[in-house]
Amino acid sequence: MRDNLVKHLLLSCASLSIVFLAGITVTLFKEGLPIFKEVSVFKFLFGRYWYPTYDPPDFGILPLILGSLWVTLGALFVAVPLGVGSAMYISELAHPKLREILKPTVELLASVPSVVYGFFGMVFLGPLVQRLFDLPVGLTCFTASIILGMMALPTVASIAEDAISAVPRELREASYALGAMKWETITKVVVPAASSGIIAAVILGFGRAVGETMTVLMVAGGAAVIPRSVFQPVRTMTATIAAEMGEAPMGSDHYHALFGIALVLFFITLGFNLLADKIIKG
């Protein structure tokens, strides 16, 4: 009797996440779909101008999609080599005592609030980038990529590390027994054997970076134009929603357009998470 009660209580806890997810999805569709009565899906996705408050307004989110894409790819350029490199070092080379310090430290990076990263980017990295490359402004796609890369680093490192550690000891021994040295064993046996996990780590890192809002709002510069260079300010989809939602009158086209952006973002991250899931499970 009591067992049953506990079981049902826990079941409702578990089901709540499904309810939340369903609620969010329904809201996104309900508030986002009306914009497509005003503009076609094609014009929304590939329109080159985002002037939601002009008369007549332009609701083209291509600059925002490209902004997100550029910043995220840039972040991966930082997070993937650093993350996979640290994962290889931590699981294969580090002395056990050093490993005990390094692994939690890398994971601690994930616990720094994103506004703190943004703050760091604004007051330290931005001015530095501006001086180093002699730019009119320091808050650029490049700056945001570096900060986002730092933020995605623990995701990539931690998942890649799990994948590398999960490679059975027997495979390493087989390699050593054939006369292979440590480096050959790591690069030719361990990393290939962990490749699906490492790819999943990269994809989840992508998901982490593409959904990040506060940091890019603070650091990316905020210009909603199609970027021509990484040293230009850009605006991501997430930053646009966060910056403009407060000003868009509820129920207006602008309001629905912002939900439309959220819908696009939702599909992108959902797609990547499903992909990562599929790769991990093989």
Binding site: E170, L171, G179, A180, P192
Partner: peptide, 27 residues
């Protein structure tokens, strides 16, 4: 490395690499 080339070893459980048959032997 040379020593282990002269003294080969086979383990308790079969432990082929997750590679092709050819690449296992060529490793």
């Amino acid at each position: 490395s040379l020593l282990r080339r002269r003294v080969g070893m086979v383990f308790q459980r079969p432990n082929p690499f997750p590679k092709s048959v050819f690449d296992n032997v060529a490793y």
